[in-house]
């Protein structure tokens, strides 16, 4: 189990920053504290995230799978569809 006061900071970029309205949000860690649970929680709070072509989560600068655990010290970011080049 995870401490109830464990919170996560999530960096937002591009369209996810516009949807949420800020470049960083802090929220209580979901239980279990995984990428998949975090995405579920964010889509619940911000339904427009569910309309994107994709929405990945990065942990410490790497793309992370749904079962990847999250910790307070992690650098977490929402990654909407990239469009470099």
């Amino acid at each position: 189990m995870y401490a109830e006061d464990m919170s996560l900071k999530i960096a937002l970029f591009g369209i996810t920053r516009e949807i949420v309205g800020t470049s960083v949000i802090e929220l209580p860690a979901p239980a279990p504290a995984t990428v998949g649970a975090l995405l579920d929680e964010l889509r619940k709070q911000y339904p427009a995230l569910g309309e994107l072509r994709s929405c990945a989560v990065a942990v410490n600068n790497e793309y992370a799978r749904n079962d990847h655990p999250l910790h307070t010290v992690d650098e977490i970011a929402l990654i909407p569809p990239v469009a470099g080049g």
């Binding site: 970029f13 591009g14 994107l52 072509r53 793309y63 909407p80 990239v82 469009a83 470099g84 080049g85």
Partner: peptide, 22 residues
């Protein structure tokens, strides 16, 4: 273009749009 975390917003006469977002 597939993996690097850079995003592009196109600006048109009548608004803007994030490329590939939807």
């Amino acid at each position: 273009k597939q993996v690097v975390t850079i995003w592009k917003r196109e600006e048109y006469e009548d608004g803007t749009e994030w490329v590939a977002a939807h």
